[in-house]
């Protein structure tokens, strides 16, 4: 993990309600870099986020629309954000439900731009 990656991820976790921010290898679902509150299962979030992104890529391929830029999985107990993070990478954030979705989305897109 480079200092720049760490700084970018730390900026995401500063957004209120964000529990973890992870840079993930899109094909493997492995953690490349992370910034997380204590006790957060970043390995699991990375693996599942990458898997979901792979599955949903079939949708955009089928409908001939551009690759996914942002995905948000909403659940009763929290949310999983995934953004395309550059060459073969994904930016993932796990949050609670009491979070400003627009702010997290912008933080991820900003981070993706800084990493590219």
């Amino acid at each position: 993990m480079t200092a720049r990656e760490q700084m970018v991820l730390d900026d995401i976790t500063r957004v209120s309600g964000v529990k973890s921010a992870i840079l993930v290898a899109a094909d493997d679902g492995l953690v490349v870099a992370e910034s997380a509150l204590e006790g957060q299962a970043t390995e699991a979030a990375a693996a599942f986020a990458a898997r979901l992104a792979q599955r949903l890529a079939a949708l955009t391929r089928t409908l001939h629309t551009p690759p996914m830029s942002v995905m948000l999985l909403q659940a009763t107990g929290g949310q999983l954000f995934v953004a395309a993070g550059g060459e073969g990478l994904l930016l993932v954030a796990v949050t609670g439900n009491d979070v400003n979705i627009g702010e997290v989305r912008l933080a991820l897109l900003d981070a993706a731009g800084r990493l590219n």
Partner: peptide, 12 residues
């Protein structure tokens, strides 16, 4: 149909 990340996670 799976990934190294998932295999490693569930192996652990």
């Amino acid at each position: 149909d799976t990934s190294i990340g998932l295999v490693q996670l569930f192996f652990g």
